[in-house]
Amino acid sequence: MLENKREHLAKFQSLIALAVMLIAMSFLSDSFFTPENGLNILRQISVNLSLSIGMTLIILTGGIDLSVGAILALSGAVAAGLLKNGIMLEPLGVKLEFTVFGAIVSGLLVGSAAGLFNGVAVTRFKLPPFVATLGMFSIARGLTMLWTGGFPVTGLGSSFGSIGTGVFLQIPVPVWITGALVGVFVLLTRTTRFGRHVYAVGGNERASLLTGLPVDRIKIAVYTLGGLLAGVAGLIVTARLDSAQPNAGLGYELDSIAAVVIGGTSLSGGRGSVMGTVLGCLIIGVLNNSLFLLNVSPFWQQVVKGFVILAAVAVDRMSQRDR
């Protein structure tokens, strides 16, 4: 009886934490429960949610990705550079100009290629995910600096900017984008064979190999999807700022991993959900917004966020011991 109560509590711990935060803020700030602030929170978490969906898939397989922030910056910089300046093919003496659509596709392809590189490094070269993605972090940061020359790429136009600042039916476009991604990946993980295989690989990789699952291909696929979603986040950030910043995405890896763990996904793999990650992103978004409204120093905000992450990991470890 007691074990069943603990299991139910573990399932709803993220929802309970969010409810407690909302109730507390209803007393602490008059400006928290307003439509404008609600939309602001959703807009702010859209980038982290895009990154965290991909991170969820990767962690479900027992991996980790420390390069998502750097891939975000590289994807956004490539899209912005191609849109603004095109690319010169020196041997042919031809300059290619890019439309908004072409620049978007290019940015997404760059993110996917970086994720594919991570997947191949982890599976074919048997590198630990921590090492492989840390290497990609450095590679992507360096390529971003080389591509931009260390200077922001600005003046990208209103059509591209609408990705980050546009509004449709009174809801920000980034919220629509991430909402669609949530729907797609909830269906992917819950209703498809690929989703079942992701959980199987994370739950017991050796058993998955023995049953004939293509473990390497599954891992490559999830890392590629992680890179693709980092590319989506990069486009949103670049469009919102109307500028591709060479140092964009610094520290975003921490927020992404935090959202996934707070949402109930086990760092050991095999357990968790995309909807749990949505709750994790909401908790971090509400926490950041609450601390800002309460005029808490940004430095203390980092301290509080660190303690929240430690608490979430501690709860995860305790629940594993109980099992």
Rank of each mutant, 00 (worst) to 15 (best):
L2D: 14
E3F: 12
K5T: 12
K5S: 13
A10Q: 14
S14D: 12
L15Q: 15
L15H: 12
A17P: 04
L18M: 10
A24Y: 04
M25R: 07
S26L: 10
S29G: 02
F32M: 09
F33G: 01
G38W: 12
G38Y: 12
S52Q: 10
G54C: 06
L66M: 15
I71H: 02
G81Q: 13
G86E: 04
L92N: 01
F101R: 06
A103H: 10
V105A: 13
V105T: 08
A113C: 03
A113W: 00
A114T: 01
V122D: 06
P128W: 02
F130P: 02
G135Q: 05
S138P: 04
R141E: 06
W147C: 00
P152L: 08
S158A: 15
S159Q: 15
S162C: 00
L169M: 15
L169T: 11
P172G: 07
P172Y: 06
V175H: 08
I177Y: 02
T178Q: 07
G183A: 15
L187K: 07
T189F: 09
R196V: 06
H197G: 12
T211F: 06
I220T: 10
I220Q: 05
Y223P: 10
L225T: 13
G231C: 04
G234V: 08
L235R: 00
L235D: 00
L235A: 02
A239C: 09
G249L: 01
A259L: 05
V261H: 07
I262E: 07
G264P: 08
S266R: 06
G269D: 09
T277F: 03
S290L: 08
S290P: 10
L291Y: 08
V303D: 03
V308D: 07
V313G: 03
V313T: 06
R323L: 13
